[in-house]
Amino acid sequence: MSAEKTITITDSTGVHARPATVLVNKAGSFASDVTVEYSGKSVNLKSIMGVMSLGIPKDAEIKVVASGSDEEEAIEAIYEVIKKEGLGE
């Protein structure tokens, strides 16, 4: 089983360093494996370099997937951060 959510990035500069930092920190606080998919590639959301390497631009559609004991909470918390940072919806 796993939990997932599809999100559209609205920030005009995409997922750049500062919000990526917040996202990775948040993902790292959960036991579940968390990945983010964009444009056919999937990377570890606990890896700053993985996230940055996707080069997620404005208007991108990304999919966050969590699997593990706290997968539901993880997805919810990450979605909250994305909204709070004005990154996407």
Binding site: R18, K46, I48, G50
Partner: peptide, 16 residues
């Protein structure tokens, strides 16, 4: 100061 938060994360990055 935030740029250094990103630098710190690189040093804990499992993929690295």
């Amino acid at each position: 100061a935030e740029i250094f938060s990103a630098h710190l994360l690189v040093l804990s990055d499992p993929e690295l």
